[in-house]
């Protein structure tokens, strides 16, 4: 199908982009990789008056280090995230999960910032950002602010971004010595997760000293499995991990759709949490 008509602008800098968004108010839409926005436009589920293409703003792209923090530009493509040596070294969980997003052609265009701003609970990267305790730097007419991932995902397809705000970069604390694993359950190779689990584990002396577990598609936003995390602290073997995983679906609100019932999703959350944690500890 053919998208509805809109005006188009392609700013060359963050300042220009922020000004274009501010001038257009609620009627503007940021275009990043377009891999979620263009399907929506084609199906006429979105009707922006102005599309602000941020695809040619050099400062939004690329990966750098800032002390103990890894900084990834919002326009860095999935393909570049997967292959970036800094991401692989300091945020292996993100590289691993991003490699499961869609297919190679979509990964060439889709971006980390677009995936987070889109705030789809079935998307793989929101839960990963939550597990990694990422911070999102945002620019608007009033200047810049930093939003922690735990406050960024507000509701189904709704982020903390105001219509006139632009996501600039994603800041991820480096985690030396943590094991990680992203366990995704999907029906078709290129498709979205029915449920997925991101696990980060720090081991100490044969037991789990600290764990961070986040769930994809277990509610209208990505969620931390806090009950499972608490039960994992001090866990020392597959049996203890299995018991902790039993708590993974606590406090979740999974949806019903063509792929799964809420009960089935809860079952998956428990099974996938056990697998993800065991693999993250190297005992899977």
């Amino acid at each position: 199908m053919i998208p509805p008509a809109f005006e188009y602008t392609r700013p060359g800098s963050v300042d220009e982009a922020v000004r274009a968004l501010a001038d257009a108010g609620e009627e503007a839409k940021v275009l990043a990789g377009g891999q979620s926005l263009l399907p929506l436009l084609r199906l006429r589920l979105a009707f922006p008056e102005l599309v602000v293409d941020v695809g040619r703003i050099p400062e939004l792209r690329g990966v750098r280090e800032d002390g103990d923090t890894l900084v990834i530009g919002a326009m860095t493509t999935h393909h570049d995230v997967v292959h970036d040596p800094l991401v692989r070294r300091h945020a292996g969980l993100l590289a691993q999960a991003t490699a499961t997003v869609a297919d190679p052609a979509v990964r060439h265009r889709g971006t980390l910032g677009g995936s987070l701003a889109h705030a789809d609970p079935a998307g793989d990267l929101p839960a990963v950002a939550l597990a990694l305790d990422a911070a999102l730097v945002v620019a608007g007419p009033g200047g810049r602010r930093t939003v922690p991932a735990r406050e960024f995902f507000v509701d189904y397809l709704q982020s903390a971004l105001a219509p006139d705000e632009l996501l600039l970069e994603v800041r991820i604390p480096k985690r030396a010595g943590w094991g990680f694993h992203y366990e995704k359950f999907h029906a078709v190779a290129q498709s979205w997760a029915i449920v997925a689990v991101a696990a980060l584990v720090r081991r100490d002396d044969g037991h789990i000293a600290e764990a961070r577990v986040a769930l994809t598609n277990m509610g209208p936003t990505p969620l931390r499995a806090t009950a499972a995390e608490e039960a994992l602290t001090g866990a020392d073997g597959p049996g203890a991990v299995a018991r902790a995983a039993e708590a993974a679906a606590e406090g979740t609100r999974p949806s019903q759709d063509l792929s799964a019932s809420p009960e089935y999703r809860e079952h998956l959350a428990r099974v996938l949490t056990r697998r993800a944690v065991l693999t993250a500890t190297g005992t899977g």
Binding site: Q35, L38, P104, A105, H108
Partner: peptide
Amino acid sequence: TVELDGASAKSCSVLAVQAD
């Protein structure tokens, strides 16, 4: 699927203006 600046892309999911 076509090649856009050396990388595969789904041409139904790219605007012509993005290929400028």
